[in-house]
Design a protein around this nucleic acid. Structure first.
Lengths: 361, 361
DNA sequence: TGAGATTCTCAAAGCGCTTTGGATAATGCA
DNA sequence: TGCATTATCCAAAGCGCTTTGAGAATCTCA
C-alpha cells in the first residue's frame, strides 16, 4: 500500500498523513494519533526509496571493509566496532551500508558511495600514518569520522581514538618498574597510525630509562594468532631474549601464550606479557584477576562514539569538528611479574603489590 | 550533476543516456562509448536514490545482527561470513545493509526492511532448531537464504550449511578409533540448529560403539574463550574426566588449551582435542601439522555461496529453491593422540599413522 | 530511387514520497 | 456578532531516474 491509497482510505490527504508520520507540528495530536494507529492497523509503512529521493537524504551511513589480496584477513575488531556503531544508527533511524572491496578499490568505493548518494556520511577504519581517505572525503564533501587518527594529515576532522602512545608508555613503564630491561613489542602492521603511536609510547618509556630500542625486539604485522606465535618464538629463541613482551592485541597474545607453553616458559613468571585489550566480546580478558595484564579500551564503545559524532555532524548545522581521546587504563593481571634476574632484589612487599590486581590509571 | 544536465551537456536525451549507461541494446556502440567516456570525464554518476525509486529495486541485501542483552556478544564468525558475502554483492553491483538490533526486535527489523523497501533480499544468520524467521520472510515475500538450516521448519527454502552431523560423528569416530571412550563435547548455544546436529553426530558415533552419552561431558553455551576454559576445567576436575574433547569452535579451544596448560595436562598427549574450525582469517589453524585436529569448513566461503544463491533467486525468474551442503574434512593435527590408558595397547605403527597429518575425507 | 526494415533518439509519464503555498475550518477577542 | 488569528488540511510541484510508445534518421535491397 502506498501513501496515496492509505491516506485515501483513512479520509485524509497525503500531505497530512506525511506530516503526521514525520512529526511535523502542523498537524493536531488527535489526527496524528489517528494516523499512527491506522498505519499500524492497515500495515502501512512509507517506502524509504521514495522518501530518500524526496528528501535528498539517504538516512544511511557507509562503512567500507577493505580486503587485501595478500592478507585476506578481516580485522577482528571490525565486528565489535560495527556492533557499537550500528546500535546507535538504529536508534536514530539510520541504516548502515557496508561495502566489501579490494583494498586498491577503496578510494573509488568512497567516491562511489558519495556520488551515487547512497550515504549521508562515512566512517574511516584503520587509518594509516598518512591516510589519503581523509582528504578524499573532505573533497567529496561527505561528512565523516575516523576511528583513529592520521598523524601526518593536517587539518581538522572528526575522530575517536585511544591514547595509544600513553597506553603503551604506561605499559612499558610498568614493566620497567618490575625490573624488566629487555622488552619486546609485537605491534600492528607497519604504517598503521595506531602502531606508530604505540611504538612511540614504548620508545618514550624506554628512552626515559636510558634504554636503547633494540630492533630485534620490535615486530610489526597483521595481528593473527600465528603472528604472535612466530614472533614470540623468534624472540625467545634468540641469544638475548626479552623478559617481557608488549602485545598489541589479545589475538596474537594467544599465539604468544602458545609459544611460551611450547617452550616450557612460565607466563608472568619467567616472561611477562602486557597486552592491549580491545575488549572483544568473544574474547574477554576478565575474571577476578584477568589473565593478562592489559591496557583496555572497548572498541565497541569507540563504535558508539563514532556513530554519535557522525550523526551529530550530519544533523547539526554547526560546522565544528569533534574529537574523543579515550584513555586506556592499565589493569594488572596474571601475566606480569618481576623480571627473573631481579626477583631476589625486589622488595617482597612491593612485588606483591605489583602483582595484585588494581587499576593503575 | 544530474541526468538532465549531463545529457544536455553532451547533446543527447536523458533516455539515450540512461539506456547507454544501463546497457540496453537500443543504443549504438558508438553512442554508448561516447556516453561512458563523457560520464567519466564530467564525473557524472546516476543518483541511486532516484534509480531505486524508478526501478522499484533496492539493489541491496539485508543482514541483521541481533545483540542479546545478556550475552552482548557478536558472533565471531560474523565478520568472515559478511566479508565473503559482501565480496559477491560488490561484484554484482549490490549494496549490503546491516541492521544491528536487540534480539527481541529482530522479527520487527526484518519486517521493516521488507516493507520500507530498502532491500531486495535478506540473509538469516544462526538459525535455531525451530526458527520463526524463515516463515516470516516467506510471508513477507522477501527472497532469502539461510546460513544453516532449521530442523523443525518444514517447507523448502534456500540454505547453505555444513554437514555438522557428519563432521561431528567423524570426529568422534576418529577419537574412538584412538581408543578414547570418555569424550567431552563443548558445543554451541542450546537451541541453535548447528549445535543440535553436532550433538547428534557425536551421539550417533558413541551409540555405534555402544557408549552411553554422559550428560556431564556435554556443554552448551556461547563460544567464548572463557567458556572453553571453564567447561574444560570443570570436566577435568571431575572424578571421571574425559580423555578427549570435541570443541565447536577455535575460540573456546583457546580457553581449553589454557585450562590444560594451567592444569599441567598435555594437549594431544594426555588429553586429545578435536575442534571444528571455521577457518577464521585471524585465527588460522595451519602449519605443516595444524595445531588442532579439526573438521574444517570456511565460513567465508559459506558467505560467498549464500550471496550467490540469493542473488540468483532475486534475479532468476524460476522459483526453485537451492541448497548447498558443505562437507567438513577432518584433518589430523597435533592435538590428538591415543587414549592414555590405551597407549601401550595400540599397535605402534597404527598410532603413528593416526598422528600423521592427512586428510581423512 | 523509394518502400520497408532497422537503428537510433526523444517527449512524457510515472515511481511514492516530501514540502510549499494557499484554502478552509475553528478559535479568540473585542 | 464580526473580524483577526490560529489550527488544520489540501492540491500540486518537485526529487532524479527509468521506461513506454512513438517519431526521426539511417540503412537495405530490389
Amino acid at each position: 500500500m502506498n501513501l496515496k491509497e492509505f491516506s485515501h482510505r483513512i479520509g485524509l490527504s497525503p500531505t497530512t498523513v506525511s506530516r503526521a508520520l514525520n512529526g511535523y507540528p502542523e498537524v493536531s495530536e488527535r489526527t496524528r494519533r489517528k494516523v499512527l494507529e491506522s498505519a499500524e492497523r492497515l500495515g502501512y509503512t512509507p517506502n524509504s526509496r521514495a522518501a530518500r529521493l524526496a528528501t535528498g537524504r539517504a538516512m544511511t551511513i557507509g562503512h567500507i571493509l577493505p580486503l587485501s589480496k595478500e592478507h585476506e584477513m578481516v580485522n577482528p575488531i571490525f565486528s565489535d566496532f560495527i556492533a557499537g556503531a550500528g546500535e546507535q544508527y538504529s536508534k536514530s533511524g539510520y541504516d548502515l551500508s557496508l561495502s566489501v572491496v579490494q583494498d586498491e578499490d577503496e578510494a573509488e568505493a568512497y567516491r562511489d558511495l558519495a556520488t551515487r548518494g547512497v550515504v549521508d556520511g562515512a566512517v574511516i577504519h584503520g587509518p594509516k600514518v598518512e591516510d589519503p581517505r581523509i582528504r578524499l572525503l573532505g573533497e567529496l564533501g561527505l561528512p565523516f569520522v575516523v576511528h583513529g587518527r592520521s598523524s601526518r594529515v593536517q587539518g581538522e576532522y572528526n575522530w575517536v581514538d585511544v591514547n595509544n602512545r600513553r597506553a603503551f608508555s604506561r605499559a612499558t613503564e610498568f614493566l620497567l618498574d618490575l625490573g624488566h630491561r629487555r622488552i619486546g613489542l609485537i605491534n600492528g602492521l607497519d604504517g598503521m597510525d595506531f602502531a606508530t603511536r604505540r611504538l612511540n609510547g614504548y620508545g618514550d618509556a624506554l628512552a626515559a630509562h636510558g634504554i636503547d630500542r633494540d630492533p630485534e625486539l620490535v615486530f610489526s604485522g597483521e595481528m593473527t594468532e600465528n603472528y604472535g606465535f612466530a614472533t614470540t618464538m623468534q624472540m625467545l629463541g634468540s641469544r638475548n631474549p626479552p623478559t617481557a613482551i608488549l602485545i598489541s592485541s589479545i589475538i596474537p597474545a594467544m599465539g604468544a601464550r602458545r609459544a611460551l607453553h611450547d617452550l616450557g616458559i612460565g607466563l608472568g613468571d619467567e616472561v611477562s606479557v602486557v597486552i592491549h585489550d580491545d575488549d572483544l566480546s568473544y574474547f574477554r580478558n576478565e575474571g577476578d584477576i584477568p589473565i593478562f595484564t592489559a591496557t583496555r579500551s572497548s572498541v565497541r564503545e569507540a563504535g558508539r562514539l563514532c556513530a554519535d559524532i557522525l550523526l551529530d555532524t550530519i544533523r547539526g548545522a554547526r560546522d565544528e569538528r569533534r574529537h574523543v581521546l579515550l584513555e586506556a587504563d592499565l589493569t594488572v593481571g596474571q601475566s606480569t611479574g618481576p623480571a627473573p634476574a631481579m626477583r631476589h632484589l625486589i622488595d617482597r612487599d612491593r612485588a606483591e603489590a605489583l602483582r595484585r590486581p588494581q587499576a593503575l590509571t
